[in-house]
Design a protein around this nucleic acid. Structure first.
Lengths: 203, 203
DNA sequence: TCAGACATGTAAGTCGTTACATGATTCA
DNA sequence: TGAATCATGTAACGACTTACATGTCTGA
């Protein structure tokens, strides 16, 4: 049961939060979802077009003047329905293609020094990632505690379409924090692996 | 520094172990490297062709008769050189696109029941994976201990081209086990995340 | 006035999957 | 003799990236 057209549903899902322009979508993904998702303009604009054609989203008349207007897209009832159907389907297992692991595996016929270099490099990469995630975690936890959200968080969470209850807002924040936790746990396990390997190969 | 043409170097690296046919390569990847790599025929055969054209690998004359001969490919000096250059380059960070995380994140406006369903589904998937990895780990560790390798392991490790020293063999097995350890640690962390989420959302 | 952010879009190319088509060999 | 496995290959499609082209608005 392979669910394709991931960009399609990602956009639909983001628009189910609030109406946005293509540029907004890109920014939201880059700032808030970068640890588990990515999109690029080459996909976003054509996909928005075809979503409009199918009546899944509506394109605004455009703010601004001249040839570069800002178009805001909002989800339609039909789009909401398609989104809810998609989200209920089991996600297909991610394709596994880890280049670092491949290099590590293939390095066994080379000097151990080379193998270690690959692992040390991986470790520092993941460690750096981890640092960033942890900082975000601290900020988010603090925000949740005192119910005061910094600009970046607001921009991702706010839903101007309709007023959210305190409960809904709390759930949004919890979910947001938990996706971050996933990133942290996984990256920590990678760092732990590196340490396991380094200690084994240097003795 | 984005290293593309991953299939190209994956094939080159596998052929640096021992000469193989396209079919062998597919089988090796499916059996031994499936937790961090995949390849399909649609990529393998055309890529082998172009590697031959560039003098990176050599195609045998073909065993068998008729139109379906078996062709064995072996790496050339030029290919070995290209492989060693590639492996020394830093691997580019994997593209992050985790559909489960996306669904989880986007489910915040839906009933908690739906969110939980996504997570429980993810958990059982990962748990199943983990079970398989752990079984392989036990087999491999036992094999390493008594220096007796089961057929599947032999098929992946053996290098008929030249006799390997005991040291080299030991290193190969260690590396093989360690790639499996990576899979185990990462999958364990995902299961741990699911548990964290479930306990948080059900209280 | 100039830099930088905001903003939209396309073309070309790469990469990867899927489905199909074909045939040989082995062994029960 | 028929099923399973071994074995090679292609065509069509779909997904994704990259680079480019263009233009607007805001504030120092």
């Amino acid at each position: 049961m392979s669910t394709k057209q991931k960009t399609r549903f990602a956009l639909l899902g983001l628009l189910s939060w609030k109406p946005m322009s293509g540029y907004d979508i890109k920014k939201t993904v880059d700032i808030g979802l970068s640890h588990f998702w990515n999109e690029n303009y080459g996909q976003i604009y054509p996909t928005l077009d075809s979503l409009v054609t199918e009546g899944m989203v509506q394109k605004s008349d455009g703010e601004g003047s001249g040839k570069r207007k800002r178009f805001v897209y909002s989800i339609t009832g039909r789009g909401e329905k398609a989104f809810r159907e998609w989200i209920s389907l089991p996600a297909d297992p991610p394709v596994v293609r880890n280049e670092v692991q491949l290099k590590f595996f293939l390095s066994s016929s080379l000097p151990t020094k080379k193998t270690l270099k690959i692992v040390r490099n991986y470790r520092s990469q993941q460690q750096e990632l981890l640092q960033g995630y942890r900082e975000s975690e601290v900020i988010l936890r603090r925000a949740i505690e005192c119910d005061e959200y910094p600009q970046e968080v607001e921009e991702i969470l706010t839903t101007p379409k309709r007023r959210r209850s305190a409960d809904q807002r709390a759930k949004q924040c919890t979910i947001f924090l938990l996706t971050l936790r996933h990133g942290i746990l996984v990256v920590e396990s990678r760092v732990a692996w590196c340490d396991e390997v380094i200690s084994l190969l240097t003795t």
